[in-house]
């Protein structure tokens, strides 16, 4: 019942790229890990993602970006989350993101970004650990 808080996570596919294999695989993996996964579908704008994140009161937003637009999309979503008073939400994700960009994004307050070939278990563990740290702090 109330003893164990469910992790709510929004899996989003921002931008115009329709390659959702990764997003679907990770959404299913999160579900199988016991998370409640809100999947918003394809072709989402940063505004749509943040709007959904706020209404659904999620703990985490995970975005899959393969389109190379990560330097625009991640900071924009982060900015909107902060503006909406949802700065407690972890913004993480994965995709084709060069290492320098990963570092630059992490500096801007974005969580871990997972590259191709990362096992889904790594992302699950990361979210669990982050969540546990939040709730003991």
């Amino acid at each position: 019942m109330s003893d164990e808080r469910k992790i709510r996570i929004l899996v989003a596919k921002p931008g115009l790229d329709g390659h959702d294999r990764g997003a679907k695989v990770i959404a299913s993996a999160f579900r199988d890990a016991g998370f409640e996964v809100i999947y918003t579908g394809l072709h989402q704008t940063p505004e749509m993602i943040v709007n959904a994140a706020v209404q659904e009161d999620v703990d985490v937003v995970a975005m899959s970006v393969l389109s190379g637009a990560h330097m625009t999309l991640f900071p924009r979503v982060k900015e909107l989350l902060d503006e909406s008073g949802a700065d407690h939400v972890l913004l993480t994700g994965g995709g084709i993101i060069p290492e320098d960009d990963v570092a630059a994004l992490e500096e801007r307050g974005i969580g871990r970004l997972f590259g191709p070939g990362t096992p889904t278990t790594a992302a699950i563990e990361y979210v669990r650990e982050w969540f546990a740290a939040q709730n003991t702090a």
Partner: peptide, 29 residues
């Protein structure tokens, strides 16, 4: 909710994408 994992995939918002940005609408899964 999946009886095996306790997790769930909530996908109903996909159908409501056209209206999701309307401030007069609040959707909760």
């Amino acid at each position: 909710t999946s009886p095996y994992s306790g997790g769930a995939l909530l996908g109903d918002r996909i159908r409501m994408n056209d209206i999701a940005m309307d401030p007069g609408i609040f959707i909760r899964s």
